[in-house]
Computed example of a mutant assay.
Amino acid sequence: MSRPQEPHRPFFHFGNPFRMISPKGSHLSPKLVALLNTFEETLAGRLRKLNPKDKDDVLSLSWMKLAMESLCGTHNDIKTLISEIDLPVSDWDEKWIDVYLDISVKLLDVCIAFSSEISRLNQGHLFLQCVLHNLDSTSSNQFIRARSSLDGWRHHIGSKNPRVENCSTILDKLVESLDLPKVKNSAKGKLLMRAMYGVKVLTVSVCSVFAAAFSGSAKKLLDLNVAETYLWAQAFNDFQGNVNGEIRNVFSSGRFMVLKELEAVDGIVKELYPKIQDGVGLAEGKEFRSSISDLESKAQKLSQGLDLLTKEVDGFFQILLTGRDALLSKLRSGGAVSDQMLAGNVGAQVVR
Rank of each mutant, 00 (worst) to 15 (best):
L342G: 03
S139F: 05
G241V: 05
N16A: 07
V258Y: 03
I118P: 04
K200Q: 11
F316C: 00
N16F: 13
D325Y: 15
G241L: 05
L61H: 02
V206E: 01
S297W: 11
S253E: 09
D307R: 11
N237F: 11
H133T: 12
G124R: 09
L328T: 15
D278K: 15
N242A: 04
L101H: 07
V209P: 00
S149D: 02
L221V: 03
D238Q: 05
G323I: 00
E284S: 15
F317K: 14
E117T: 11
N166C: 09
L221P: 04
A299M: 06
L331F: 13
R154P: 00
N141Y: 15
A235L: 00
I118A: 03
S2K: 15
D109I: 05
Y197I: 02
N249C: 07
V346N: 08
K190E: 08
D77S: 10
S252F: 08
I247Q: 04
M193I: 11
S177M: 06
V58Y: 12
D98T: 15
L295F: 05
S253T: 08
K184M: 08
S139W: 02
K49G: 00
E271W: 14
E296S: 15
F239W: 10
L174R: 06
A233E: 03
S205N: 12
V346Q: 07
M196F: 08
K173V: 02
L202D: 00
N134G: 01
E69V: 02
L107Y: 14
T38N: 14
D294M: 09
V33S: 10
P30L: 09
R352T: 12
M193D: 08
T80D: 13
Y100P: 00
N249M: 08
E312A: 01
S186V: 03
S291K: 13
D93V: 09
G158D: 02
N16D: 15
S291T: 09
L50C: 03
L221I: 12
E94W: 14
W232Y: 14
Q123D: 05
G315L: 04
G267N: 10
S208M: 01
V250P: 01
A235S: 12
P181W: 03
N134S: 09
K160R: 05
L327D: 01
M64D: 01
C207R: 07
E284F: 15
V201I: 13
H13N: 11
L259Q: 04
S29D: 10
M68H: 02
S139M: 07
C207H: 11
V337M: 11
P23T: 10
M341K: 04
P52L: 02
L192F: 11
A326W: 07
F127T: 04
D172P: 03
S338A: 02
E6Y: 13
I97A: 08
